[in-house]
């Protein structure tokens, strides 16, 4: 490769500012651009959930005193009281994996990602069982309650699924050894997304499952 030279008389040996290292969007100071991008994606995604939950409450308050309507049972809290801790706690191994790779511990990364995946998948499978029972009683076509219940929980389930796909995808690259203590942006943003998917569930749980009992 040819040498780099400035204007005549201005030749310098270094061409990078002092104290800054080149790296692929990586951390020589501050957060990466990918981190900022994910923060903003989560802002816009959170707005999606806020719109859905606002719609739920808008319809509920304008609907009259009986909720759920049309003789539909209040949502059962049995399955959900197992699913919720599984999903919320799945953030812990994800965090453990992320802090692990930041110290260069690739083993922690692989184990943490796998445990998170297993817990997230368990949540999704249990949601499948819940749906299987519920559709015997009502579907999205039954009335606006069914529409809201299945759309909101389904939209969240879709996000869990996307989180699982991203998890699988970075697990693959974790086994290929692409992440190190200096290169972990992918892990960082996928972990952030996963924490978001977990956190938003709290609001759905409160609105759709708990509130009708009060």
């Amino acid at each position: 490769m040819s040498a780099v030279e400035a204007d005549p008389g201005r030749t310098g040996s270094r061409t990078q500012p002092t104290g800054l290292l080149a790296g692929p969007g990586n951390v020589t100071g501050g957060k990466s651009t990918a981190w900022w991008g994910m923060v903003l994606l989560i802002f816009t995604e959170a707005t999606f959930f806020a719109i859905l939950l606002t719609t739920y409450w808008y319809i509920r308050f304008s609907h009259g005193p009986v909720w759920p309507p049309d003789g539909i049972e209040k949502p059962s809290l049995f399955l959900i009281s197992i699913m919720t801790p599984i999903l919320l706690l799945s953030s812990a191994p994800m965090h453990w994996a992320e802090t692990g790779i930041k110290k260069g511990r690739t083993g922690r990364l692989k184990v943490g990602l796998f445990v998170t995946f297993a817990m997230g998948a368990t949540f999704l499978i249990m949601q499948g069982f819940e749906y299987h029972d519920l559709v015997k009683e009502f579907t999205p076509r039954t009335d606006v309650y069914g529409t809201l219940f299945f759309t909101i929980t389904g939209f969240h389930g879709l996000h869990v699924l996307i989180g699982l796909l991203m998890n699988m995808w970075i697990q693959y690259y974790a086994w290929r050894g692409r992440f190190t203590a200096e290169r972990y942006t992918h892990v960082e943003v996928v972990a952030m997304y996963w924490h978001f998917v977990d956190a938003v569930w709290v609001f759905i749980l409160a609105s759709l499952y708990l509130a009708p009992h009060f």
Partner: peptide, 12 residues
């Protein structure tokens, strides 16, 4: 066949 805006089925 969802019912978000279907007034007959409780939509708005």
């Amino acid at each position: 066949g969802f019912n978000f805006f279907n007034v007959a089925k409780g939509g708005d």
